[in-house]
């Protein structure tokens, strides 16, 4: 079985995010970048799938030099190979443009049975790349997957559980498929020292627009169907109100307020 994992580097979710307001982009320098937490679940699912069914895992990312770190981490976790997609022309990509590059990389890898992605990235939060990827490749889109029940590469079939409002949906689909996974689908492992030692020395291979047979005028900002026109930082929250008085009174006032705000029903 041939498995691809798409991984993105994002700013540390625990650190304060700083915006470059005029440009409408994240200020990335000085920030501690990490692997998108949802992609860690995707990577773990790929490792579990390989353990169960054999095969090979290729991890890919689109991003600057620094993004090699997330691939190196994947190598330390013993994925078989990695590629970083990078080209000046990719700058300004929106989700669709990103998905186009990733789709081109997946085609180049060839004979892929299954692609794992995280359900969304913690910086952009759009959650649509996996679906766009499936559309571009013409493969089965399986989003918000909470469990992979079975994969049958021979008969080209996959059965998964999807987390839907109020329950679980069991879906059978044809392979190849693009599967986006949710938090909690598994427990991502840590690399061990031997893995780290091997991975640290590897030169991370790169693919540019030409390697991916992409027309430069059809990638990056040129291909983006959306454009960020403004970034606004939410205004600091005003001071709250402190209710004073007897406990019964306070509870009554608080309940009324919550009802007014439609937080609870009367």
């Amino acid at each position: 079985m041939k498995i691809v994992v798409c991984i993105k580097q994002v700013p540390d979710t625990e650190a304060e995010v700083k915006w470059d307001i005029p440009k409408g982009t994240l200020k990335r320098d000085g920030m501690n970048p990490i692997t998108n937490p949802f992609d860690e679940f995707a990577l773990e699912e790929a490792l579990l799938t390989r353990e169960k069914y054999d095969g090979e895992i290729v991890a890919i990312t689109m991003g600057p030099e620094k993004a090699s770190d997330v691939l190196r981490n994947a190598l330390a976790l013993t994925v078989n190979s990695v590629y970083r997609c990078t080209d000046e022309a990719f700058a300004g990509s929106d989700t669709y443009a990103t998905a186009s590059v990733l789709a081109a990389a997946i085609k180049k890898i060839g004979d892929v049975d299954i692609v794992f992605c995280g359900k969304q990235s913690t910086d952009g939060n759009t959650g649509v790349v996996a679906a766009e990827l499936a559309t571009l490749l013409g493969w089965s889109p399986l989003t918000y997957v909470s469990k992979v029940r079975q994969i049958d590469a021979a008969s080209k079939k996959i059965v998964v559980e999807r987390a839907v409002e109020g329950g679980t949906e069991v879906v059978e689909a044809k392979l190849p498929a693009v599967v986006s996974v949710i938090k909690g689908i598994n427990e991502p492992r840590l690399p061990n020292l031997i893995g780290i030692k091997k991975a640290a020395k590897v030169e991370i291979p790169q693919w540019n627009a030409a390697d991916l047979n992409l027309d430069k005028s059809k990638v990056g900002s040129a291909a983006a169907s959306t454009k960020v026109v403004e970034i606004a930082v939410p205004p600091p929250r005003g001071a709250g109100e402190i209710l004073k008085g007897e406990i019964d009174e306070i509870v009554n006032i608080a309940t009324d307020r919550l009802i007014d705000l439609k937080v609870i029903k009367s």
Partner: peptide
Amino acid sequence: EQQMLRKM
């Protein structure tokens, strides 16, 4: 290698 180890 040392940076990755520290993180891990």
